[in-house]
Design a protein around this nucleic acid. Structure first.
Lengths: 196, 196
DNA sequence: TGTCAACTTGACGCAGTGTAAAGTTTCATC
DNA sequence: GATGAAACTTTACACTGCGTCAAGTTGACA
């Protein structure tokens, strides 16, 4: 409630975020987060009931800090294929900033319903954006004949997975710009009706 | 060494496989595997030094049982775009059979070098297949101009990830056949020079 | 009959999460 | 300035799952 409480909570979330994002291949422990936040491990439990809920809160914290909604909203301005490009660029550009947090969430998903729900929630938001981009194609009669609107949405959503991003940028060494460009190209090739 | 030893080892691997594949969303424990194999938990350690090595051995066991090499070899017969289709069908058709095992491997990757190495090994094999399929396109002058041979390989490899398969079939409810068809379509659209 | 390998039982150490309880600091308020 | 509440600390412990250890049991084979 007090300002000090707020600030400690924020310090915890920032610490978790930093640890998850930078390095953190080896699982980030509660004690790591506590140390980084400058408090005792037990004090974490005064603010968050479990590791899962701390991680979930961290994703929300990052969303708020990076203003993901505003960014995705921008892509809504364009129409047709340009909208597809804009959405791919917006979401694709956001992935590197949440990669670590998403990774942790995915790792917990198998054993924690809280984490699973948070992940599903996030995915639903992305899917919603995909659906809107596909709808823009349908409106312009530009969707490939061999795909239903739902299938095109599924395909785009699958294409824009964090894992795919990680493979291309982390494992294959692509630059972020190259990734976005290639995904735009691929999404267009996969979803647009071929007729120049 | 003895036949009985062999058979116990095989029973363990089959048990692990079954558990990982069927259900097993909640992490599969050593005690689960032991119970399923009909031996004590401790006896597992007479055959495998650690959970990681048991999982790695399980992937090899599955590979041997399903004869992945022979399946992928078939795709080498075709040329040009047909080869791309054949490879996508071969690997894509294999994914559902190793999904559970791969999942477990990925989950361990973060904390275990053994598992990481096994995963990298498997990925290298898939990448090799991707590279060969792309090379067949290059040989026929059919690769899209905007992609280098290496980039096309990266892209195909990213497209054929287990995660992408899981999203489409598990999360979106696509049939295996629809998945393969859509991936062939998408790979062609993304990689082939457009010129009809 | 002895012995060797495979297996069992039971106990333990270790890491990491989460809980519990008692003590300390800080700060607002009477 | 004493009182009391909130935030935090320290210490300790329960629980799960992995991995180790040691002392049996069982069965096959020489």
């Amino acid at each position: 409630m007090s300002r000090k409480n707020q600030s400690t909570r924020t310090r915890i979330l920032d610490a978790a975020w930093t640890l998850l994002e930078s390095g953190g291949a080896r699982g980030v422990r509660m004690s790591d987060i506590a140390k980084a936040a400058g408090i005792s491990r037990q004090a974490l439990y005064l603010h968050f009931p479990s590791r899962a809920e701390l991680l979930v809160a961290t994703t929300r914290h990052v969303d708020a800090a990076k203003d993901v909604d505003a960014r995705l909203a921008e892509s809504r301005a364009a129409t047709g294929p340009a909208r597809l490009d804009a959405f791919v660029a917006a979401w694709g550009g956001y992935i590197p900033e949440i990669h670590g947090v998403m990774r942790a969430l995915v790792a917990m998903m198998d054993t924690d319903d809280e984490a699973r729900a948070a992940y599903d929630d996030r995915m639903a938001a992305v899917r919603h954006g995909c659906a809107a981009a596909v709808a823009a194609l349908v409106a312009g009669g530009q969707l490939a004949e061999h795909l239903s609107e739902a299938e095109a949405t599924d395909l785009l959503w699958a294409l824009l997975s964090v894992e795919t991003w990680a493979r291309l940028t982390r494992d294959c060494g692509w630059s972020q710009a190259r990734y976005v460009e290639a995904m735009q190209q691929t999404a267009r090739a996969a979803l647009l009706r071929q007729e120049d």
